[in-house]
Each structure stands twice: as structure tokens, then as C-alpha cells.
Nucleic acid binder design. Structure first.
Lengths: 337, 337
DNA sequence: ATGAAAGCGCTAACAC
DNA sequence: GTGTTAGCGCTTTCAT
């Protein structure tokens, strides 16, 4: 047990060899005990466990994983932490990963594919058990690395397109289409759209495309639109709707890129005394908790975020059949349409 | 370049030795080039870089860190991902960590100290460059391990108590006190409290204690309280306030454990036609974006969540002086008081 | 400036 | 059931 001067962040250094020696057994026996693998006599097991306890032995995963080639880390790249939906997703991922003795290494791309590529390379250097990414859109470089690595890969959140390996999610196009059909069915015809920056959030774009395509089925289209420059937020939604209405185009319903945005729109209506849904109907996306409990629950589409995370984790651990799992979504009929 | 049959999740295995051989230099030279350390001739550098590129060499951090004893991983344990405030915090942490070539390994304790202890042990096995925890309350076992490990440690979010190593945060007691004084100054005297489950969320408890202590300065106390059983949410706040008012005790102001809760309360008032703040004043905590943009901006206290994450990360990297940094908080005077 | 060699702490055959 | 012995892929003296 060599306890000499050592750089900060380094450990006293009780090694497996120390434990084995203290227990009076060989290294491999100690290793077997500590990992519950292979057969060991009750006697050895007890001795090793006692020694480990006494020496406060802390295994070194760097060494362990290097020796066994492969780690119990799972790399996860999400576009943002600011948008509530990704923590929800992470939460699901994390839960099943931890339950299976794996650990999440999380990286945030800020919606930049170039950043994502760098993060992927960085994560692969840990020889992770697998990688979980959000979306299907990656740089060519990233795709090449991923293919070359042979790592198990799961792409989540989007089923509109082709993936590299495994996919779990739902169709954003169809979600948009469902929103459109709902509004059309309710008789709305002068429909506006308030969205957040198109930069990066490809899935919001896909929803809007699906939305317009479905409107087109009945010869309709959005009559006005307002796209913010920043990320999705309550404030952006509030201001977006204010600007949309200021355009002068008559509008009887508004589709928002997200529930945050829609809640902002709702707040605008409350402030201005605009009657919802009589004067203006509002439709969001995601089914966020806060919007479901507004005085008038927001009509929205609930997306299976946590569930998606759980399935993604199970897929990455090889516990799930199928290369593509579409979890669908659900219309939440609220009081705003 | 040994490309034999290998277990799934394993790599083609281009090693540093392969690169060195291809470049016609020694391993150590190749290593020096790839890490920009030590002096290398332009010629060797070029050869090595070309070879690495050609072979699509991907360094193995498991090996690298094992050899150099110590990793560039930083372990982070947060209580929950469901509560928006922690992603905000993480976001700050992650930003400076990534900018400094470090990676976040994130674990979620679900507000359980026992779980936290297990997660800490698990994280320490990676010989992380440092650890970031939320709060000052840990099991004795966890504290012992942390001290023994010698790892640099930062405890965030709470300055009301003693820490193990470095601390960054604010005083939750004082935040509660500020809320109380604000309400008292405005002339409210019949004050209620709606909180979420006390289990685990020690900081919410500290706020409430500070709140009551400050009320006591003027011989006041909360006249009614309602504590939910689950986590903080809009729904819990809405129902909590409904129950509080149903108690029958006359109340002219209500303090909530969180902005989610307070927004729920606000929604309840809107639904029931309770005039805010005339009939009932509302005070939250955290200064969440969504609450700031309600028709009547919620009076609240803005907490420096992202900033706290940044400072925590800098502290863990040893880039910050001082063992204890109090970032304070800020009163947000809204329209609900 | 560069190469050889000795580990880092562990796991995985392989013998016994 | 248990110990011995090679490595895992890299960094790091230490010569040169």
C-alpha cells in the first residue's frame, strides 16, 4: 500500500494486490470475489471481503475496464439542457442505466452538429458500452466515426428518416399533422404559427412541415407565421403571438412549436383579454406538466419523453428487440381549442 | 493493427503502437505529438499526424488515464432531473467543463442520501478529477469515502452549514427570510405556506425555516400550511393552495416552496376568480422563466443556478480562489404581491 | 529530439 | 477452487 506524495486528485492507492495480500489469497481470487464471478470458497470470500473493507479498497474502473476491453459507460449527446424535454428524456435513460450498473456520460451539443461530432469522438475515446444521440441528423464525419467504432448506437426522438443503427422515437411530421387535423376538425380555418428558431431544431421544423402538409389536404395553409430567433421559451411565445397578431392578418387559431411557446401565447391572451378559444384557439406540443394545469389546460400532444429514454437505454444495453421502435404520441384535448 | 474477432462494443483497435509504426517513430514520440507535450521535431510531428489520420486512430482514454493516474472526468450528483433547477445548474457546469476539456459523468440520487453514497462510490472508481455534489447533507459513509479519496470536492446550492471542501451557493435560510420580510413590509399578516414533500428537499425546509424565523421578528408566524406528498409541480401547487384555502383559515398571502408550486397557485386563483394580489398575494422561489412572463409576473427570488454551476466547475478545476463562495440571490418584484 | 522499457491496476486465460 | 502470468493501451522516466 504505497502512500507516497501524489498529485492532487490521486488516491491513496490501495490496490487489488494489497487486498489480496492482506487476505492471504491470490489477486485473481480477490478479483473474483469483488466481482462475484467464478467460484470462490466461502472462506476466501469472507477473507477478501474483510480485507477490502478494512483497507477501504476502492476499485479502479480505469484499470478494470482497460483489462476487460470495454466500459460500463454510456455516452449521451443531447442538444440542450435548457429545454425541459431533454432532462425528461435523460431521466428515463439514467434510470434504466443505473439499474443496470451503467453510468451516463452526458454531453451537450447546443444544437450544433459540428459540436456533436467533436463530442462523439470524445465519448468514443472512453470505449463506451454504447452511445445515445438525439435525432437522425449528424455530420458525415460523425457518421463515419460511429460506423467505424462499431459501438452500439441509439438515435432517439425522431423516426422521420433513416438511422445508423437503432432508433426509438416518434414521427414529428405526424405529430404536426395530428395538430393540423384537430384544428381543421374543430372548424378553424385561419391558422397561424408561432415557432422558435429553426436553427438546429430540425424536429420542430419537421412538425411544422407535417402540420402544413395536413392542412394542405383540405386546401388550407397557415395564413401567418412568426418565427423567433432564440430558443423556445414562454417569453418567446408570448412575444411571438403578440407580433403575429400585430401583423393584422385575421387568425382564429395558432399552432406553437412547443408548449412553452404556447403557454406564453396563452399568457398574452390572458393579458389582452383575448378569449380562448372563442377568439383564438391555441395548440402546443409536448404535453408539459405546467401547461396541463393552466386554468384552461392547453391542447397539446403528449410525447413519451421519459419512456423514450428508458427504451433508448434498454436498446443500447441490447435488451430490446427491433431496430426501430415508434412510441407514438397522444392528443391531449385541453380547453384551448 | 490486430483486427481479430472481438466482443461487441469493442473497437477495431488501432493503437498508438500502430500509429507509431506506420509513422516510423517510437511510441513515446507518437504519444508526445498526439498530446502536444514535450518537444518533437516538425518532421516527426507531421509523420505522426498523417499516420493517425490515415489509420483513423482513436485514443483510448481508459489506457491514457490509467497510465497517468487520474482522469479528465468530473462526477456530478444531482438530486433530480425532474426539477428544472438542476438542469439549469448542470448546464453551467457542463459549459465550463467542456471548455476545459473535461467530461461530466452525471448521476441522479432522487433525493436519497443512501443512493447518493452509492453513486459517489461508483463515481470515485473512475478516479475523477473532481466531484460536484448538491447540498451539504451526506451520509457519514459518503463523507468518509470523500475524505479518504482526496478528490477535489465542490458542494453547491447551499451555504447554510459546514462543507467538506469547497462550497458555492447561497443561503436558503436567507432567501426564505427575504421573502418573509417582503411580505411583512407590504403589510400582509395572515400568511400561509404551500410546500412540496419535505422528504429529501432539505433546502426547501431551510427556506421555510428562514421564512418563519423572519416572520417571528415581527411576532408573526404562518397561519396555515399545506405540504404536498410528492415533488414540486404546478399541479401540486394548485391543489396545495386549493386545500389551504379550504382549511377555512383566512389568508392574505401565500409563500410557496418553489415557482412551479406558485404558478400552480396562481392558476388556481385565475380559475376561481381570486384577485391577485388584492385578495391573495403569491410569492415563489427561483425566478423561473415561465413564472416571470405570466400576466402578472410572479414575485419570486432569482437564484443563480447556471452561474453556480459555472463557479462549481471552475472550483473543481482549481481555477477559483476561496473555499466558500456565496453567490447570493435577488428579489424579483412581480405583480403578485 | 527520441526510443526502450517499466509500469498504471486490473482481468483473463491457463495451469494446477 | 485458486494462483501465476500475460497482457489491456497508454504515459513516463531514463538513457541516449
Amino acid at each position: 500500500m504505497s502512500d507516497t506524495k501524489r498529485p492532487p486528485g490521486t488516491f491513496p492507492g490501495v490496490t487489488l494486490a494489497d487486498v489480496a495480500r492482506a487476505a492471504g489469497v491470490g489477486e485473481s481470487t480477490a478479483s473474483r470475489v469483488l466481482r462475484n464471478r467464478g467460484s470462490v470458497s466461502e472462506r476466501s470470500r469472507a477473507k477478501v471481503e474483510a480485507a477490502a473493507e478494512r483497507l477501504a479498497y476502492l476499485p479502479n474502473r480505469l484499470a478494470g475496464n482497460l483489462a476487460s476491453t470495454g466500459s460500463n459507460l454510456v455516452g449521451i449527446v443531447i442538444p440542450s439542457l435548457a429545454n425541459v424535454v431533454f432532462p425528461d428524456f435523460l431521466s428515463g435513460v439514467n434510470q434504466v442505466l443505473e439499474a443496470n450498473g451503467h453510468q451516463s456520460v452526458i454531453a451537450v451539443s447546443e444544437y450544433s452538429p459540428r459540436r456533436e461530432e467533436a463530442l462523439i469522438a470524445s465519448l468514443l475515446a472512453w470505449r463506451p458500452a454504447g452511445l445515445i444521440l438525439v435525432g437522425l441528423d449528424h455530420t458525415e464525419g460523425a457518421k463515419a466515426r460511429l460506423r467505424a467504432s462499431g459501438t452500439r448506437l441509439v438515435e432517439a426522438y425522431d423516426t422521420d428518416g433513416v438511422g445508423l443503427d437503432r432508433i426509438v422515437g416518434f414521427s414529428n411530421r405526424n405529430a404536426g399533422a395530428m395538430a393540423a387535423r384537430h384544428l381543421v376538425t374543430r372548424g378553424y380555418t385561419r391558422i397561424g404559427y408561432v415557432g422558435h428558431s429553426i436553427h438546429g431544431d430540425i424536429r420542430a421544423v419537421k412538425r411544422f412541415e407535417g402540420f402544413r402538409a395536413a392542412l394542405a389536404e383540405t386546401e388550407l395553409d397557415v395564413v401567418a407565421r412568426e418565427i423567433g430567433t432564440g430558443t423556445s421559451s414562454v417569453e418567446a411565445g408570448r412575444e411571438g403571438l403578440a407580433r403575429l397578431l400585430a401583423q393584422g392578418t385575421e387568425v382564429d387559431a395558432c399552432y406553437f412549436s412547443n408548449d412553452d411557446m404556447a403557454l406564453g401565447g396563452y399568457f398574452h391572451c390572458l393579458s389582452r383579454g383575448i378569449e380562448v378559444p372563442n377568439q383564438l384557439a391555441l395548440f402546443g406540443h409536448n404535453g408539459l406538466e405546467m401547461a396541463r394545469h393552466a386554468p384552461q389546460p392547453l391542447t397539446s400532444i403528449r410525447t413519451p419523453r421519459a419512456k423514450m429514454g428508458e427504451v433508448a437505454a434498454r436498446m443500447v444495453l441490447g435488451q430490446e428487440q427491433g431496430r426501430m421502435i415508434d412510441l407514438g404520441f397522444e392528443l391531449l384535448e385541453g380547453g384551448t381549442t
